[in-house]
């Protein structure tokens, strides 16, 4: 099961890159890589039909979170 280790290592790498990056707009793509990696890991950890729903819910939820942060960041940048 080497795929699971690859995915977990990429999650750690993306989390480190997201932490080191200072700019908010450039942080978000790194967080997106981590979300992809975690969503893939959820299905690889437990082979059950509901795992697909869990991965989709996690992915859509984190995308919505990134969307909200980015759009508030865009509006806030103009106002400040």
């Amino acid at each position: 099961m080497i795929a699971l280790y690859v995915v977990a290592a990429i999650a750690v790498f993306a989390a480190i890159r997201a932490t080191v990056e200072r700019n908010t707009g450039r942080k978000l793509p790194y967080v997106n890589v981590m979300n992809f990696a975690v969503a893939g890991a959820l299905v690889l950890l437990l082979d059950h039909p509901l795992s697909l729903v869990a991965a989709a819910a996690y992915f859509v939820g984190s995308t919505l979170e990134a969307n909200a942060i980015a759009s508030t960041y865009a509006g806030g940048g103009r106002r400040e």
């Binding site: 080497i2 795929a3 690859v6 995915v7 790498f13 890159r17 790194y30 890589v33 893939g40 299905v43």
Partner: peptide, 13 residues
């Protein structure tokens, strides 16, 4: 699944 995570890493990460 692992290949798609590597592919998105090359674009975004």
């Amino acid at each position: 699944i692992a290949g798609m995570v590597i592919a998105i890493l090359t674009i975004q990460g």
